[in-house]
């Protein structure tokens, strides 16, 4: 993994097609909010499906708390669209089917020569794409729990908004 993806680094502002085929840029998707940037192997992996079920449970909170999820895999948009619909996910999936960022980010999972996917990785980003926390999900227990994500989002939101403490009378 490149240093830019470790805590304190800043993720390059990658541009990829979303699950509908629209070109999207990461900074545009962040839109001034904290972001969970989630690289995953693909629909075929049971560990990914288990982790996604947790994220789907969390998305209702994220949607009213000004936080974003972005999930990235090497699958083509139409596969992602079907997977996303089956999960009932409402956030953006980005397709790196050309594997443009796989080596650039140092996230190629070399032990899967069949699918040639991303190493499962979760990054918690500030609105300016600075990395707060990095979770290596190669082993399932390396992935963040939903409580850990809540703590990260709380810290990022507190840092992003000077009015975290409500103004007095």
């Amino acid at each position: 993994m490149i240093d830019a993806l470790r805590p304190g680094g800043r993720v390059p502002d990658m541009e990829l097609p979303d699950h509908m085929g629209n070109p999207r840029r990461l900074s545009e998707l962040a839109g001034g909010d904290p972001v969970l940037l989630h690289f995953f192997r693909g629909w075929f992996c049971p560990k990914e499906r288990q982790f996604f079920r947790r994220l789907v449970d969390l998305q209702d909170d994220a949607e009213v708390a000004y936080a974003r999820f972005v999930s990235v895999s090497v699958e083509p948009p139409q596969v992602q669209a079907a997977f996303r619909a089956g999960l009932d996910a409402r956030w953006t999936f980005l397709s790196d089917s050309e594997r443009r960022y796989l080596d650039a980010f140092g996230l190629r999972e070399t032990t899967d020569t069949v699918h040639d996917p991303y190493v499962p990785t979760c990054l918690l980003l500030a609105p300016d794409l600075t990395v707060k926390t990095t979770y290596n999900g190669y082993w399932f227990w390396g992935r963040p729990t939903m409580d850990e994500l809540r703590r990260d989002f709380r810290a990022l939101t507190r840092a992003a908004h000077t009015d975290w403490e409500p103004p007095g009378p």
Binding site: V64, A65, A67, R68
Partner: peptide, 11 residues
């Protein structure tokens, strides 16, 4: 304008 998938509440 491809929709930005994020919060469902107004800023």
């Amino acid at each position: 304008a491809p929709i930005s998938l994020g919060p469902v509440v107004e800023r």
